Amino acid sequence: MKSSLRLFALLFLSSSSFADTADDAAWLREKGGLIFHDAFEREETGNSLKAIGNGWESATADRVPKIKQADLDSGILKISSATKEAGHAAHIHHDAGFTDGGAVIRFKFPGLSKGESLQLGFVDRELKGVHAGHLCYGIVGQSGITLIDHKTGVMNLEIRKQREEAAAKKTKIPAELDALLKTKQTTAPYKPDTEWHELVLVTEGDEMRLSIDGKLLARHRSEGFAHPMKRWFSFLVPSTVWIDDVKIWKVK
């Protein structure tokens, strides 16, 4: 009996260790199909909504038509957000369309702005009851990595209303709501630099995972991650970031 329990414990630890080091890029290649790829080997055609080309749209471009926020330069998408002028961080998206799957990108913080960060994730503009269809995101910032469920968290319209009312009254949100929102995200340590890195962001069931350079850095479970249709893959950039390559994969 003791030997059986010992064997079970060893198997459990082994499987847990494998899960913590799982290669999500390999998972996407082996279990999924590539539905989009862009290496940005072209020139943009101005500053408009569709100027990046190849199906990309910049949702904030028309707010500041005279300011270039997306520059295609030698196969690199260089994003420089006119956040102050546009009243919104640069928001660039592309059609995706999956339940489980994810994206593989190469990114770099060029060191041109203070506090450079990159938010990337998934949107479903057809979803009612959630502000702008924001579903879930991974955020790479100067103080770490955050995975967040917006669908059943801060972008849920009922929750958003409660938070706005509390802000207007300069009061705290209800304790139970605060406790709920804390379950909708996780943060992991990460120290960014100005080198190129490969980032993998996936959703599988109710779990989201983020890896950089083949190392799993953050994972979290929340019901919003299981939304059945991630229609858009989206970048939200408050300052500057460079993107060299994007692949979107569908597992189911």
Rank of each mutant, 00 (worst) to 15 (best):
A90P: 00
K66Y: 10
G46K: 10
E57R: 07
K50P: 06
P65I: 12
D73Q: 15
S81E: 03
R63E: 14
G97A: 02
N47D: 01
A90K: 00
L118D: 00
F98L: 10
S80K: 14
L49R: 11
S74T: 02
A96I: 02
H93T: 08
T99Y: 00
A90N: 01
L118I: 00
G111I: 14
Q69G: 14
K78F: 02
L72E: 03
H91R: 09
Q119H: 13
T99K: 08
G102N: 10
K68R: 14
D100T: 03
A82D: 14
G97R: 01
K66N: 07
V104M: 06
G111E: 06
F107N: 09
A61L: 09
S113K: 15
S80D: 12
S74D: 11
S80P: 04
G46F: 04
E116R: 03
A70P: 05
W56E: 01
N47G: 09
G101T: 03
G111V: 10
T99R: 13
A59L: 15
T83V: 13
G111W: 04
I67Q: 06
L112N: 14
K84Y: 13
E116L: 04
I92E: 13
K68Q: 12
K68T: 12
H88I: 14
H93S: 09
I79Q: 11
K66F: 10
T83Q: 15
H88E: 15
I92T: 14
L49N: 14
K78M: 03
G115A: 10
S113G: 02
D100F: 07
Q119E: 11
A103N: 05
F98S: 12
L49V: 09
S80E: 12
L77T: 08
T60P: 08
P110F: 06
S58I: 13
A59C: 08
A82C: 15
T45E: 07
E85I: 03
R63W: 06
H91A: 09
K50T: 02
A86C: 11
G87A: 12
G87I: 12
K50V: 01
G97V: 02
K50Y: 05
V64N: 09
I92K: 11
D73C: 14
S113M: 09
L49S: 03
S80N: 14
E43H: 10
T45W: 03
E44W: 08
I105F: 01
H88F: 14
K78I: 02
F109I: 11
A96D: 07
H94Q: 06
S58D: 04
G55L: 10
A86K: 02
G75Q: 15
K84M: 02
S81W: 12
A82I: 08
E57P: 00
K108P: 14
I79Y: 08
E116G: 10
A89N: 06
K84I: 05
I52T: 12
I52L: 13
H91S: 05
T45C: 04
D73S: 15
I76V: 15
A96Y: 04
A103Y: 06
A51L: 06
L118M: 02
S48G: 11
L118R: 00
E43I: 08
K50G: 09
G53H: 08
F107V: 08
K78C: 08
P65N: 12
I92L: 13
T45S: 12
S74W: 03
A103F: 05
